[in-house]
């Protein structure tokens, strides 16, 4: 049941963002109660450059889980590469969640720059987790650029809409059966996470759905359980829907025929 990402094996299939919790204590409770083993941390470059985010980053390190730094808020290849390098220094990890925003309003990734940045970073020894769309061709290009994980959105960041294009998610899974696929962004409620896990996705990355909840720790746990349920359901073999009722017991011999 374990998941391996660039040689690191984790049991939890929930990756949790660390932004906008009511307090760092709430964040820490959410991590503990969900059992998540990977958290993402956004680096505003001003913070990383002067290392003044120190105390918060120490709190993150003290959570004792893997840190996946991200390039949130970057709009160009050079910004993203610079941020990734700062993150590597700061957190001593080659992991980087590559986020290159192409559209200010929908926060849609700029897939052209994404592929370019992924190539530069992979060549430089980074292990890139690209935040991408559900486009198969882009996915293929990212793999060619050196990525070994793909992280498609299921709806715009923070929208809480849940899976919008099941068909695309399904064909992405079919197209890349061996690549770890993590749905990143757009989740609103636990059932959304179950849905994508039932489609055979390997993990779910989310932030706002938990950090914006009334009780953040409980919501984190709810997502962890929903993800596990979806994964178990998928692995156990789901029934295909049919357009007619199928009785679960034989009809012959029932009173109705008497």
């Amino acid at each position: 049941m374990a998941l391996t990402l660039y040689g690191t094996t984790v049991r939890s299939r929930l990756l949790l963002g660390t932004a906008r919790y009511p307090s760092p204590l709430d964040l820490s409770a959410a991590v503990r109660q969900s059992g998540t083993e990977i958290v993402t941390v956004s680096l505003r470059r001003e913070t990383a450059g002067s290392r003044t985010g120190g105390t918060f980053f120490e709190l993150i390190r003290e959570l004792g889980v893997h840190v996946l730094p991200n390039t949130a808020g970057c709009h160009t290849v050079s910004e993203a590469v610079l941020t990734a390098k700062m993150a590597r220094d700061l957190f001593r990890t080659n992991w980087i969640k590559l986020e290159l925003i192409g559209h200010q309003d929908t926060l849609q990734p700029d897939v052209f720059q994404l592929v370019e940045a992924a190539r530069l970073l992979s060549d430089d020894g980074f292990e890139v987790f690209p935040y991408t769309t559900d486009d198969l061709v882009v996915g293929e290009r990212l793999l060619r650029a050196g990525c070994q994980v793909l992280m498609p959105w299921c709806a715009p960041i923070g929208s809480a809409m849940g899976p919008q294009n099941i068909l695309a998610l399904r064909s992405m899974r079919a197209e890349f059966p061996e690549v770890p696929l993590i749905v990143d962004a757009g989740m609103g409620r636990p059932s959304h996470a179950t849905t994508v896990m039932e489609l055979g996705y390997d993990a779910v990355l989310l932030n706002t759905a938990v950090s914006g909840a009334g009780d953040t720790a409980t919501m984190a746990r709810a997502f962890a359980l929903a993800i596990e349920a979806g994964k178990l359901g998928h692995d156990a073999g789901l029934l295909e829907p049919r357009d007619m009722a199928v009785p679960s017991t034989p009809l012959i011999g029932k009173g109705v025929f008497a």
């Binding site: 505003r44 001003e46 913070t47 002067s50 003044t52 985010g53 120190g54 105390t55 918060f56």
Partner: peptide
């Protein structure tokens, strides 16, 4: 912003 930086507004 989680930071001890009191420098000018960005």
């Amino acid at each position: 912003i989680e930071s001890n930086d009191a420098g000018q507004a960005s």
